[in-house]
Simulated assay, not measured.
Amino acid sequence: MSKSQMNSSPISKSVYKKRLLDLQVELVKLQRHFIAGNDKILILFEGRDAAGKDGVIKRIVQHLSPRETRVVALGKPSDREQSSWYFQRYVPHLPAAGEMVLFNRSWYNRAGVERVMGFCSLPEYEEFMGSVVEFEDMLVRSGVKMMKYYLDISRQEQEKRLQARKSDPLKQWKISPIDAKAMEFWQDYSLARDEMLARTHTVAAPWTIVHADDKRQARLNVISDILTRLRYDGKDQTLVQPDTRVVLAYDRENFDNNRLAS
């Protein structure tokens, strides 16, 4: 567990539920605003297997209108998609005016799982890393409000969660062949993460780090951070201040590497 994760305080279930409901009310206010203003909101969630992406996204969209809110979690690409421009399969899912789209893993699969597991070649990886910044710059220039979150967990926490999946009949759908390799390739994933963050963190599309060993704190603080970043009418400023021990801006120049699980 990182130093920052050790310094954040766990909260009771009752306090968590109350704070979550208050933040979800704020999300409804936000949705009303971005629908009226024809805003396009795009949120990417990345992280290791079992980092908590599903849980965070579920709490964000729980009470939002499904017509203007979409969750995108693409599976293995087809043969046709593999032969297409890499970003082509993602483009149709981008938000239109008045929509919020959340990617549960995104084009950054190429910088993480595909890179570590050998599902792409080195030239394909380098082509992605060389073009993703330009791709995201184009999205932002077109008016997309984009946020990128990397959920970081410790090795011990990942192992515990992956083991829990095996014994929970309601989580069997989450088990994949990749899970078995998560611990074996832990260090490789760490190196891939570090390179991805350093090379794709930009002013237009910066990365935000989430210390996610504590699921409740991660969920509350990601929602708070989203609400802080976006303008909407009637915002309750007392509710939307994230704990910077849990959610913090990535800084490739001054970032203390001990604050990421290694």
Rank of each mutant, 00 (worst) to 15 (best):
K3T: 09
L151A: 14
D233E: 14
L102D: 05
R59P: 02
D152W: 00
A204C: 02
A249D: 15
G112S: 13
E195N: 05
V101F: 06
D243S: 12
S4R: 15
R245M: 12
E159R: 10
S121P: 15
L248T: 10
A212S: 14
G118T: 07
Y232K: 14
P10V: 09
S190W: 04
L260I: 13
L23G: 13
K160H: 01
E46H: 06
A261H: 12
Q217P: 03
L122C: 03
M117D: 13
Y108I: 06
T69N: 08
P66K: 04
E68D: 01
Q163E: 01
E81T: 06
Y108N: 11
H201K: 01
I223Q: 13
R161C: 00
E99F: 03
L42C: 08
I43H: 07
W107I: 03
R80S: 11
L230M: 13
R89T: 02
V203Y: 02
W107R: 09
F87H: 09
R115T: 04
V210Y: 04
P66M: 06
R70N: 12
D251Y: 05
D236Y: 00
Y189I: 00
A182W: 03
G75K: 14
P95L: 06
Q237S: 09
R80W: 00
F185T: 01
R80N: 13
W186R: 00
D188S: 12
D256W: 05
S190K: 03
D225W: 00
V101I: 10
I153Y: 00
S131Q: 14
N109R: 13
P92N: 08
Q88I: 00
L20C: 02
G130E: 08
S9M: 07
R48V: 06
G75T: 07
D188A: 13
Q31P: 01
T238L: 12
L122K: 11
K18T: 13
Y125V: 08
I35G: 02
A212C: 08
I226V: 14
F128I: 08
Y189H: 11
V140S: 10
R67G: 12
K18C: 02
W207E: 15
Y125A: 10
P66V: 04
V133P: 07
K53W: 06
S14R: 12
F34Q: 15
V91C: 08
L151C: 13
A182L: 03
F87G: 12
R199A: 14
I43L: 08
E114A: 11
N254P: 01
V133R: 12
T238H: 02
E134F: 10
S9V: 13
Q217L: 11
